Simulated assay, not measured.
Amino acid sequence: MRKSTLLALAALAFFSASAAQADSVNLVKNGDFEQTTNGTSKQLSQNGDTSANRTQLTDWSTQGYNFVFGPNTADTTGSNGLTLWGPNSYNGRGPQNGLTNSPTGGNFVAADWDYFPAPITQQVSGLVAGQSYTLSFSYAAAQQVGFTGANPINYWDVSLGNQSQQTTVLSNASQGFTGWNQASMTFTANSSSELLSFMAKGGPTGAPPFMLLDGVSLVSAVPEPSTWGMLLGGLGLLGFMVRRRRHNAA
């Protein structure tokens, strides 16, 4: 392949990468839960509660028995004294269940689906009605220290506007941890602003269970018109270079 063709292919790759980057803007704010109003490893505030042992996740709302854990705290200091079963529970005498930080390594949310359950929500703006969006996030299931008993059904019920989907069901053993899983869902926007909701679900009984969540991202699932323009421009450049090479050869 001649140098001119290589240059054209490089240009096409550059245009494609630039287009993909332009379309990968995350419409969810604070999707990694790093921004809080009163620190981490605390129960999430309800109804504007500003007490010292409560905190809020910036841009998120909740009314349930939900918590935010900082890195390396889930099975050590915990969140308001609530800890999860893990290798560091009871000063290193906990079960070797593989409990780890989330894939992002930062804060993550924990929601009880059996005790005062309520969703974690955010109003997402910047949507285009009729356009598809890909929602992705990391999730897992764990159990509170001091309790035993398997939780065979654990999942997130996720909705955007009036559309709902469920994650794959996780089965968690007594004093267990399921490991982190990655979810990807496609939603079609009905308006420019819709409510994104995560509701922890499970059954048949809680002992007590927690669903974990982190790394929430919502991006366009199809290229914008500007992206198509970039791609077509790259293809046009490639065609021009190929024709030029043939002309020079002739």
Rank of each mutant, 00 (worst) to 15 (best):
residue 193 S to V: 10
residue 218 L to P: 02
residue 150 A to H: 07
residue 22 A to E: 05
residue 174 S to E: 08
residue 138 S to W: 13
residue 174 S to T: 09
residue 200 A to I: 01
residue 110 A to Y: 04
residue 57 L to E: 00
residue 204 P to K: 07
residue 177 F to E: 02
residue 80 N to S: 13
residue 24 S to K: 11
residue 211 M to F: 02
residue 94 G to P: 03
residue 170 L to Y: 02
residue 178 T to C: 05
residue 26 N to Y: 07
residue 172 N to E: 05
residue 102 S to G: 14
residue 133 Y to G: 01
residue 148 T to H: 13
residue 112 D to C: 12
residue 223 P to R: 05
residue 86 G to H: 06
residue 216 V to N: 08
residue 123 Q to R: 13
residue 40 T to D: 09
residue 202 G to M: 00
residue 249 A to N: 11
residue 39 G to H: 09
residue 136 S to F: 06
residue 114 D to P: 07
residue 88 N to W: 07
residue 156 W to T: 02
residue 250 A to S: 15
residue 90 Y to P: 00
residue 31 G to C: 00
residue 30 N to S: 06
residue 14 F to W: 11
residue 220 S to M: 09
residue 226 S to C: 10
residue 223 P to C: 04
residue 173 A to S: 11
residue 160 L to R: 02
residue 162 N to Y: 06
residue 26 N to C: 08
residue 171 S to C: 06
residue 158 V to M: 04
residue 160 L to V: 02
residue 23 D to P: 10
residue 31 G to Y: 01
residue 213 L to C: 08
residue 127 L to S: 04
residue 137 F to P: 03
residue 141 A to M: 15
residue 240 F to E: 14
residue 94 G to R: 03
residue 185 M to F: 10
residue 85 W to V: 01
residue 127 L to E: 02
residue 42 K to S: 03
residue 137 F to Q: 00
residue 61 S to D: 10
residue 219 V to R: 15
residue 222 V to Y: 11
residue 238 L to Q: 06
residue 83 T to H: 10
residue 80 N to K: 07
residue 234 G to E: 01
residue 70 G to I: 02
residue 155 Y to K: 05
residue 174 S to R: 01
residue 76 T to I: 09
residue 205 T to I: 15
residue 219 V to G: 08
residue 111 A to W: 01
residue 222 V to S: 12
residue 14 F to P: 09
residue 70 G to H: 04
residue 198 F to K: 03
residue 86 G to Y: 05
residue 227 T to C: 07
residue 244 R to C: 09
residue 125 S to Q: 14
residue 191 S to L: 09
residue 250 A to E: 15
residue 169 V to E: 03
residue 195 L to T: 09
residue 166 Q to M: 10
residue 26 N to E: 08
residue 173 A to F: 07
residue 182 Q to R: 12
residue 162 N to Q: 11
residue 154 N to P: 04
residue 204 P to L: 07
residue 93 R to T: 13
residue 55 T to Q: 00
residue 92 G to W: 10
residue 230 M to K: 13
residue 81 G to W: 00
residue 126 G to I: 03
residue 38 N to Q: 10
residue 118 A to C: 05
residue 22 A to W: 03
residue 209 P to R: 12
residue 213 L to I: 07
residue 245 R to N: 12
residue 224 E to L: 14
residue 176 G to S: 06
residue 110 A to T: 04
residue 32 D to A: 15
residue 61 S to K: 13
residue 14 F to G: 12
residue 50 T to K: 15
residue 127 L to F: 06
residue 68 V to D: 00
residue 136 S to K: 08
residue 59 D to W: 13
residue 136 S to L: 06
residue 88 N to S: 14
residue 42 K to Y: 01
residue 43 Q to R: 11
residue 35 Q to M: 12
residue 244 R to T: 13
residue 139 Y to R: 03
residue 20 A to H: 15
residue 12 L to G: 03
residue 13 A to N: 09
residue 15 F to H: 08
residue 195 L to K: 11
residue 21 Q to T: 15
residue 13 A to G: 12
residue 59 D to L: 11
residue 190 N to F: 03
residue 137 F to E: 02
residue 112 D to I: 09
residue 86 G to R: 02
residue 47 N to L: 14
residue 219 V to D: 05
residue 108 F to M: 10
residue 250 A to W: 14
residue 161 G to I: 02
residue 57 L to D: 01
residue 61 S to F: 03
residue 113 W to T: 08
